[in-house]
Design a protein around this nucleic acid. Structure first.
Lengths: 148, 148
DNA sequence: TCAAGTTAGGTTGTGCGCAACTAAATCGCA
DNA sequence: TGCGATTTAGTTGCGCACAACCTAACTTGA
């Protein structure tokens, strides 16, 4: 057995998290020109997607679904309200709860967004197997980091 | 063959990019308490890591290495300078170039950071195979998105 | 040699993410 | 029933990311 010098762990090319971080940034940049057509940011697009599925949600439910808190969501939801894509309304049963629902404009925007996922798939230039493996890796890491 | 209704692509659970985005955010949250000990943000830690490897770099080289531009880096480098971790100095040969180098304090900080990668590995609770696969997927996506 | 073009870094403004905090409504139990 | 604890959203402040823009320094070629 040959003696080998142990090299530092503090090198950029070994950092899994830096790859994740850079890929996430690149993903955001790739979405930007597509979402500019809809006048949405990436996070706004995600929130709209949740509402296209569920129509009505309160801030807490929305936040737990997308792993963000009111500090991020409240200003974002106000911007979506300003664009007339959503309504914000206090619950009658519990005045603490803010109920978010789609406007007609917000619902209509879904049709314009229909092709966005396919356009992103083209940009990614990866096979379905590679993409599924990447998604599973991310979901596992997310679950592990959130449970401690 | 049975006729099946094609469901929308616009559902959150199908979004590979959303998994990537959420995992990247969770990663940042997991680093925060570890890096608080060093009084660094995650991006500041990344920049310091590059400098621990290379000692001296200009803004353009640094930016191409970590895929960020001067709009992000200039304010960040000024904050690192304020903390006395780096020096910023104009090149004599080309006055446009800003040369970044480590101070003694900046160099010393490396010892304090030595355990951070291992602590993150513990938090991730994933096998080396899973982590390597995740890194390769991210690197492939990043390369594909950057080359178009 | 000097004007046009290119390059490096900086500035400004917007929108996240998040911690730390606040206010108000509701809950639970003594 | 009343009051302390909890829950829900909102606010404030900081540090990214990024687009769009700016300035000064350097390069190039007619």
């Amino acid at each position: 057995m040959t003696k080998t010098k142990k090299s530092s762990n503090l090198t950029l090319d070994k950092q899994i998290c830096f790859s994740l971080y850079s890929a996430s940034n690149a993903m955001g940049r790739a979405y930007r020109p597509l979402l500019k057509e809809l006048d949405l940011t990436y996070l706004q697009y995600i929130v709209m997607m949740v509402l296209w599925q569920h129509s009505t949600m309160n801030v807490k439910e929305l936040g737990s679904k997308i792993h963000l808190d009111s500090g991020t969501l409240t200003p974002l939801l106000k911007r979506l309200e300003t664009k007339c894509l959503i309504n914000r309304l206090r619950s009658k049963e519990d005045e603490r709860v803010m109920i978010i629902s789609l406007t007609v404009d917000g619902r209509d925007l879904q049709h314009q967004a229909e092709q966005v996922p396919n356009e992103m798939l083209c940009k990614a230039r990866m096979t379905m197997e590679e993409l599924v493996a990447l998604k599973q890796g991310c979901d596992l890491l997310l679950a592990n980091l959130n449970n401690q």
